[in-house]
Design a protein around this nucleic acid. Structure first.
Lengths: 341, 341
DNA sequence: TTGTAGGCGTTATCAC
DNA sequence: GTGATAACGCCTACAA
């Protein structure tokens, strides 16, 4: 009978139980050297009886190898994009027998640093990071040089040349804005993240400007606004619509912005304003009109990042590379509305 | 200069560098015994220079304590409910200086067992599990007796008396169906999960039946259907509506079902069918009509589970208890539609 | 086919 | 103040 608080049985406990050496038990468990059938049976019986489980910590330490865990840092697990990314990473590493450690940075560079530090202390086999807006990663160069696979997702590293997997932000935003232009719009608002220094925000804004330039349209800086959360995005959009020279269409540069703008337009009864959002949302197709989006492939981002890290783990020492995951324009109605008036 | 592939510096490396013993370096790092100011300064300098990080694996092993990580198993990280739960758990354990390990079961008992096994092998300090539909947890009794904090979320353990944190499934479903009855409906469909043995499905169905019984309405078994994914839920609903005695309202017992039923009703032009969904969805308020839901509090579930586990970790040895997190009925239009005809 | 010695990186214990 | 020594649980290397 196992008593409360009694410590977990060890290899030595099992060995004592069957009157063998620890090494023999180890051999049975790892299918290592030759073992007599009888011995194997007795060992297995004792293992089952004692509920013995090999201590992975000790095993990893002895092997001198890094831990069989991979660390993932995201800004916010609740955001469905990052949740899906994490799921894809978890599936990929689990297929390799590795475990996933996850931590949140809350978009704070300091917290990100703390989480990364704790992961490194655990000797993670690889580190995947969605960098916080203002983070600097130059201090990771040492670990990188030491051979730690390091992959950045969704946003590139700052101050470090490292593998990265990014969505086609600039191209996607260009396609989204070009879509609105193709439907006759000339004044198109851009509602982006705050802080405006965020990589995805910058790239998407560039794509937006690319599209305007390609069409020979002026870029009115008053049509570019920033918002940190959904309500702010909605309010900022309504403010623009009340201005003297209002936009006839809006490009929402992230799903949080979309989540604020869609209800704001509905509440204001503005069914005449065209809208394209970056990143898809559940129920987006059921709105009236349906929400036209530039859809990211979160699963592909996570999977690609994990595969990149695993390849490094397998000894790939080639130069740092950046993979771009394509996005898809999904027309559903809101992006095909003609300009009002 | 750190060379590629060179191993991480150890306590001994630092000690050698400053001509001291490993124990002294350890003391400096842990603020343990008395250390001369000069010594401390030299050690810190060497630590910084070498980029030394204490190896948590070794530390935990020496301490004999469990690992400073908590394991969380969910069916699917991509589902926003579980993503939010995971985020809440992560935040709670991080505040305590612990790290979160996550794994997915994909609703498979076998995979769940494998993930749990790997977590136990790592000596996690606590284990939080959202059980797969057909899982049995009696084998965890041994670890539980050994003092491992064990908390089940969203669904109770099978074959084991353990702490659990559940949403008010039965009561919530009763309120949802009662809401429809209050708006005049007499034939109300129930679209639940497949397999129908899933705890949440059973409880919500019971609540649904409670409401019918309380109103003195008959429970027509033909109005209860099951679906594993969103499209199936939509199709099943449309089939019911085409039947000789169709329902005038639908209760969607989970968010996947809602995600299938809402577009199916829209595509079929059935704006006359009332709908209440269990679990909230982004954009649910912007639909026309807005989607009335029984909203779960995923953050509260995750936080409560983590707190329960941490309390056990702090020595709470009281009997297993079950906490119920309240749900909230959010009327938005779809649940207030009157019966057609 | 099985056993012994040694060490992975850290900290507790007890000396100096 | 500081340093040897042993030990955590396991596995590699080398016997027997």
């Amino acid at each position: 009978m196992v008593r409360k608080g009694s410590r977990r049985p060890t290899l030595a406990d099992v060995a004592r139980r069957v009157g063998l050496s620890a090494k023999t038990v180890s051999r049975v468990l790892n299918g290592d050297g030759p073992v007599a059938d009888d011995t194997r049976a007795r060992v297995m019986a004792a293992v089952a009886e004692l509920g013995f489980r090999p201590n992975l910590m000790a095993r990893n330490m002895r092997a001198g190898t890094s831990d069989s865990a991979v660390g993932l840092v995201v800004p916010d697990m609740g955001n469905s994009f990052f949740g899906t990314v994490a799921g894809a990473v978890e599936a990929a590493v689990r297929r390799r027998g590795l475990t996933l450690l996850v931590g949140s940075s809350g978009e704070s560079a300091e917290q990100e640093g703390a989480v990364i530090g704790s992961f490194l202390a655990r000797q993670v086999a690889a580190l995947l990071v969605v960098p916080a807006a203002d983070a600097d990663h130059s201090r990771l160069r040492r670990e990188q040089d030491g051979g730690l696979p390091l992959v950045f997702l969704d946003r590139p590293a700052a101050g470090l040349a490292a593998d990265s997997v990014l969505s086609a932000n600039r191209e996607g935003a260009e396609r989204g804005t070009a879509h609105l232009i193709a439907h006759g719009h000339r004044r198109i608002a851009f509602v982006g993240d705050r802080p405006a220094t965020l990589h995805t925000r910058r790239e998407r804004h560039r794509g937006h400007l690319d599209a305007l330039a390609a069409a020979g349209l002026p870029a009115d800086p008053r049509l570019t606004v920033s918002a940190h959360d959904a309500p702010a995005a909605g309010e900022a959009t309504l403010r623009l619509l009340r201005s003297p020279e209002p936009p006839t269409a809006v490009f929402a540069a992230n799903n949080t912005a979309s989540l604020g703008i869609v209800p704001a337009l509905a509440a204001a009864g503005r069914r005449d304003v065209a809208l394209v959002g970056f990143d898809d949302l559940p129920l987006a197709a059921v709105l009236e009109p349906g929400l036209t989006v530039v859809a990211q492939d979160a699963t592909a981002v996570g999977t690609a990042a994990a595969e990149l890290a695993l390849a490094r783990l397998d000894g790939d020492r080639s130069a740092a590379r950046s993979r771009t995951v394509p996005v898809r324009l999904v027309p559903r109605g809101s992006g095909e509305l003609p300009p009002a008036g």
